[in-house]
Design a protein around this nucleic acid. Structure first.
Lengths: 178, 178
DNA sequence: TGCTAACTTGGCACTCGATGCCAAGGAGGA
DNA sequence: TCCTCCTTGGCATCGAGTGCCAAGTTAGCA
């Protein structure tokens, strides 16, 4: 991973081939694909599998907490699983590669599948088709988080995670106000 | 396109190779890739390029119209560009293929880039970093549209476009209410 | 009608990501 | 010591996508 990320940052993700990575890492191409299902997995690692972790955090929030507050707290566990520097690096790489952007969005979709039922349960209204409200709310939360991350990176990542949180709340407030 | 979509619907998108498509269509592999940059382009066609069309529709809405109403009207032009049956088929295909889902999300990102500045201009608040609010609002609108489409397809597409519009409004209302 | 320029088509070879199969090693336990 | 399990790497192969070039087709023009 270290060898690969160094190459990605220097030459770009799309311009770096798997052959270059395995040469730098001193392993065979075949072994590489045993540990990383795809080239994109190098960047995201086990982030895609974090859905259940976020869900667990969400489950621990009280039922009567406003959904947006609960989601904000739940996504907070991400900060404990990935340090800010790595997050910023991922964000910078994602911004430069369509392939990585697609993988990033796929990751969010997987989170969404995991989280939507619990959100749906919390806000259950009854008059909407099953699944609609939960999916919409989680997707919106992820969209705001993404927009905030992008803006945060554009400013150079100043202010650390607190600033990122502030931007996320700002984005969400704008959405709710219209 | 007709030959390819028939194959996709019968055998699935991922399971159908470009070679099969070009054999069915009676053209060469090389010519295929001159008309379709990627295999996914067969499904989405020129939909990815529709961003400017939506933008144009959005520009024609009065400045003092609530942003969500303006966006709803703007996205309404999609109905004039793609008939419901084709939309439903695309939706069904997208639901079955990760590759298509990724392409679909990429398409939304392209729309987002085009629409965000105009939305930002309309709701300009001033105290948020440039770009944050516009991106968040457009991404949310697309997320709600997506959730509504998924739910609509789950119910078999009953009620036509009017029902889809109703579900979209429902999703958005849930997001804004929390 | 005949000539030419421009565009279209297809074939070939190649790159790159990804996968299945199999044989060669190495670690660990009975 | 031997047997077993797991890891590793090599090989062949597939499928998407691209550059290059030659052949054919169309269109313009005299």
């Amino acid at each position: 991973m270290d060898a690969a990320l160094a190459l990605f940052l220097e030459h770009g993700f799309d311009e770096t081939t798997v052959d270059q990575v395995v040469a730098a890492a001193g392993i065979s191409r075949r072994s590489f694909f045993r540990y990383f299902g795809t080239k994109e997995d190098i960047v995201f690692g086990d982030l895609a599998e974090l859905g259940p972790v976020i869900l667990e955090a969400l489950r621990e929030r009280p039922d009567d907490e406003p959904i947006w507050d609960a989601l904000e707290q739940a996504f907070g566990v991400l900060a404990t699983q990935v340090n800010p520097e790595r997050g910023a690096m991922i964000g910078r790489l994602v911004a430069t590669s369509p392939a990585l952007r697609a993988a990033h969005l796929e990751k969010h979709l997987r989170w969404q599948e995991v989280l939507a039922p619990e959100v749906e349960r919390r806000v259950s209204t009854g008059d909407a088709p099953r699944g609609l409200v939960g999916e919409a709310i989680v997707a919106t939360a992820l969209a705001c988080l993404d927009a905030a991350s992008t803006a945060w990176l554009r400013e150079g990542g100043e202010g650390g995670l607190d600033e990122l949180r502030r931007l996320t709340r700002l984005a969400l407030a704008a959405v709710r106000k219209g």
